[in-house]
């Protein structure tokens, strides 16, 4: 029995490695200079303005510095300098006025930059005045994201994890909270980051103007597995989003095949239920991610791995190797029970 578990572990790990290789291309968009929304777009514009302006200043300063090497004193009196260690009063005065001029120019440039930065910040904060916003609460937890859709009608509230679906063109209010330590919510293609701080609620507004999948990850050091705390934001057209929302609001799909039925029993009879909830079943644990529609999500373990059956097997059998220190307990699942459990979990679309 132990051997079989080990075999299962090894094969799962191999499987994981392969899937990682094959699916590595799905890890793509997580970049501040690849904007997909108005917020990040403005920041991108600001960035490039700063880049060109300050880049030009850098070049000018470097050229002047290099010229000090080549001119070594040309145009200035040599002999008196040797003796007195300073140039004539006229030269000194000329140098001083050049420094004064350069200082004034830098003050002017910085003033322009301050204005540009403030204007961008102001424009980005305008989003909260736009009509028909969608409010999503993101709660950072070591080391995953709890996502709650706050609807006007409380019966239509939705809890999920590590994956946010948003409609394109609608303003999204992210309410940031934390269950333990400070995390930071950051989806660079959409907007800058916002810290999630225990005992506080922080707010960030974002909007996507193109459909697509945007990756984000925790940006404030939050402990052992800070590196493995990623999330996806999937921007979809309004109708597709609504369809997704309706599907997510349903309780979990009932198992259909005998394998899935067995898998459900395996789940319910193991410690899984102490931490995970599956809507419509007795499983109501709160400390781990909600699994009601687990099969529909892209990743497992806060997007440490793509959601495939092989990865899931590896994760269930040995979470501490894949994500050392994470809070998921290692549960003994016999080899006969593993496959049904996987089938069941993946059926929770």
């Amino acid at each position: 029995m132990k051997t079989t578990t080990r075999v299962a572990k090894v094969s799962a790990a191999t499987c994981t490695a392969f899937t990682l290789l094959l699916t590595s291309c799905i890890y793509n968009r997580q970049s501040a200079i690849d904007p997909a929304g108005p917020q990040s777009g403005r920041i991108d514009t600001l960035w490039w303005s700063f880049f060109w302006l300050l880049g030009a200043i850098f070049l000018i300063v470097m050229v002047l510095t290099a010229m000090t090497l080549t001119r070594q004193h040309r145009g200035f009196e040599q002999e008196p300098l040797e003796a007195l260690h300073k140039a004539s009063e006229k030269t000194e005065a000329r140098l001083r006025s050049v420094i004064t001029g350069a200082t004034i120019v830098s003050i002017v440039i910085l003033f322009v930059l301050i204005v540009a930065s403030t204007v961008t910040g102001k424009a980005n904060s305008e989003l909260q005045n736009k009509k028909n916003p969608l409010t999503i609460q993101v709660t950072g937890t070591q080391w995953w994201w709890q996502i709650e859709y706050k609807m006007g009608d409380p019966t239509r509230s939705l809890v999920t994890a590590n994956e946010i679906h948003i409609p394109v063109g609608r303003p999204i209010q992210i309410r940031g909270a934390s269950n333990d330590v400070i995390h930071s919510f950051w989806v660079p293609n959409l907007n800058g980051k916002r810290d999630l701080i225990p005992s506080r609620i922080t707010t960030e507004w974002l909007e996507a103007d193109h459909p697509g999948a945007y990756r984000g990850q925790c940006a404030e050091f939050c402990g052992l597995q800070h590196a493995h705390m990623a999330l996806w934001v999937i921007a979809e057209p309004e109708d597709k989003f609504n369809a997704w929302l309706e599907a997510q609001l349903q309780p979990a799909a009932s198992p259909r095949t005998p394998e899935e039925i067995k898998g459900e029993q395996v789940f319910m009879n193991h410690a899984c239920i102490y931490c995970h909830a599956i809507e419509g079943t007795p499983a109501a644990g709160q400390s781990g991610p909600d699994l009601t529609h687990f099969g529909s999500r892209r990743g497992i373990a806060a997007n440490t791995l793509p959601n495939t059956m092989g990865n899931l097997a590896g994760w269930i059998l040995d979470p501490q190797t894949i994500k050392p220190g994470n809070h998921m307990a290692t549960i003994e699942v016999s080899s006969g029970d593993l496959q049904p459990l996987l089938e069941y979990l993946e059926s929770l679309k």
């Binding site: 501040a32 990040s40 403005r42 920041i43 600001l46 960035w47 700063f50 930059l113 301050i114 540009a116 930065s117 961008t120 910040g121 980005n124 930071s184 660079p188 907007n191 800058g192 980051k193 916002r194 940006a219 404030e220 050091f221």
Partner: peptide, 12 residues
Amino acid sequence: AAVPLDLQAHDT
């Protein structure tokens, strides 16, 4: 120092 740029670059 520019807040919008910092929000992207901070902690990166």
